[in-house]
Amino acid sequence: MLRLSKINKYYAVGSHRLHVLRDVDLEVEGGEMVAIMGASGSGKSTLLNILGILDRYDAGEYWLGDTLIRDLGEGQAARYRNQFIGFVFQSFNLLPFKTAVENVALPLYYQGVPRRQRNRTALQYLDKVGLADWADHRPAEMSGGQKQRVAIARALITKPRIVLADEPTGALDSKTSEEVMELFAEINRTGMTVILVTHEADVAAKAQRTIRLRDGKVEPELVARAS
């Protein structure tokens, strides 16, 4: 499904370069659910952004299916993001002036799907995350857990190849975290590939595999466990 080999990433900080990812190798099979763990500043978000074609890398290769993701123009990157990737963020990143259904439908807007059709599809996806009744509510009227469900519906609506989530439970209480993680597990059971960043062990426990980053390097894998 996706393969990273010898990915290196630097950030220019003042006059020197910060080496954020060092020779990262990673392979994820279709249908897997992978957790990325590591200390704050270890490069988890950077890695996820590269996987999500939001950020560039300086050396190495990133294959998404049989597409080499490298040196893409902005337009091409946006198109791939739209087609291949579903994003879920820690702070939800819903547009506050749009209703739940409009938020979910937004990726389809950038595919040129007509309004009626995309709102109908969006409603189906809201139903999948159990929020059909909240379709016409704005984010401000919803709880954190509900917002994250809307965001998950939005990530799924384009039928992406992978869903990427950067600390999706980081802003949620433990009970709600549990529910959201159960939703990810459910999505994964339908065959969707899920990669999520977390620093909570019980969240990572839902994944089939955990990858640990330390100072931009992947630590040798521990025993893979299924939940």
Partner: peptide, 16 residues
């Protein structure tokens, strides 16, 4: 800025 970032992350091309 945030809204535009979200739109881009969801697939809005620069021309859009």
């Amino acid at each position: 800025t945030k809204e535009i970032g979200v739109r881009k992350a969801l697939g809005a091309r620069p021309t859009a």
